[in-house]
């Protein structure tokens, strides 16, 4: 064919085909998307500190292991209350002239998704210690440690945020370990990562590929979820797998008076609403409310905690817990 033997025609044709497809499949959709997209009206813009923290997040390539997207599939429910929509990313613009937009959606979950980390895990002490040495709080973690985000000082100056690090993770550091501005900014960014609830009247898209609901047991009575799993998913990163917590940061549940005691109301309230009564420990957020615990979840969790690590407390039923939870609302 003549056309195949003419280099000008041949290469122009190939380039034209590719350019045309590129415009249809990439350029137009991208342009359309950025033109017809705005952040949700009730979303909060990043604070100055969080903005700087995001830059630290980008510079250290955290996106290599952490996604920030909740897909509309059932298994992603762990990471957010609703599937992500285009508006969630609308506030992202170019970092500067030299660097591109960072939506930080990611493609790998070597570590957990961070879309909602500001709600799931907001604790300042926990996050800083986790950045300094992840294995100090999650012993099976393989996340890199970021000690260069911290200074070692002989004496504290006002405004310094000191980090209490367990001895085995100090690695010969004798001074006081103090968070740098970078670390505090990164913390602010992580705390800012929250899914904005959809405004009234906007329909959430559904989570697809639902797990088939479990066959109801014949008796139909008190079928509780696996308490150990509830604990591992929600409590373990602070109170630890062995229930001993971390000295100076998170109180032990092993042998705890609240866990053992008879004040069920206090126990449920702490789980649902958080706790900040003891100065020597970090404060606890409203873990149960944030994560939409059902009375069954709470009962299973209490029963697990009361029967683990040598604890030996009275079992509770979902009905008992439900009564207390209703008074909390």
């Amino acid at each position: 064919m003549h056309f195949f033997d003419d280099h000008k025609k041949l290469f122009r044709m190939a380039l034209g085909l590719f350019l045309g497809l590129t415009i249809i499949i990439a350029v137009i959709p991208a342009l359309k998307n950025q033109a017809n997209n705005a952040p949700l009206p009730n979303s909060e813009p990043l604070s100055k500190a969080a903005e700087e923290g995001k830059k630290i997040f980008i510079a250290n390539g955290c996106v290599a292991c952490h996604t920030q997207q909740v897909r509309n599939v059932d298994m992603d429910k762990t990471w957010g209350n609703r599937p992500g929509i285009a508006a969630d990313y609308a506030a992202n613009t170019r970092i500067d002239f030299w660097r591109n937009t960072a939506t930080l959606m990611g493609t790998e979950r070597t570590g957990p998704d961070l879309t909602n980390i500001g709600i799931r895990q907001p604790g300042k002490e926990w996050n800083l210690l986790h950045l300094y040495q992840p294995r100090a709080v999650v012993n099976k973690s393989i996340m890199p440690a970021y000690p260069w985000l911290f200074d070692v000082k002989k004496e504290l100056v006002t405004g310094d945020v000191e980090l209490i690090v367990p001895d085995e993770f100090r690695k010969g550091v004798t001074g006081k370990i103090v968070a740098t501005t970078d670390a505090l900014n990164l913390l602010a960014y992580l705390q800012s990562l929250k899914q904005t609830p959809l405004p009234q009247g906007m329909q959430e898209s559904e989570f697809l590929y639902k797990k088939k609901s479990e066959v109801p047991s014949a008796s139909g009575a008190d079928k509780l979820p696996d308490g150990k799993m509830v604990y591992a998913n929600n409590c373990q990163s602070c109170h630890q797998e062995n229930g001993e917590g971390l000295k100076g940061a998170f109180p032990p549940l092993k042998g705890s008076k609240i866990v053992h005691g008879n004040d069920l109301e206090l126990y449920v309230t702490i789980i649902m609403k958080g706790y900040d009564a003891r100065e020597e420990y970090a404060s606890m957020g409203a873990i149960g409310t944030i994560n939409h615990f059902t009375p069954e979840d709470v009962a299973a969790l209490i029963n697990f905690e009361r029967s683990s690590w040598g604890n030996n407390g009275k079992k509770v039923s979902a009905a008992e817990v439900k009564k207390i939870m209703e008074t909390l609302k």
Partner: peptide, 29 residues
């Protein structure tokens, strides 16, 4: 060979042009 080199340039210009790709536009590109 020629097609690959032409296409790479198209791809690079689309992906690197400094001045667009806000929001999900970045992800599509």
């Amino acid at each position: 060979v020629i097609a690959a080199m032409m296409f790479l340039l198209v791809i690079a210009v689309v992906a690197y042009w400094p001045g667009w790709q806000n929001g999900l536009g970045e992800t599509i590109v």
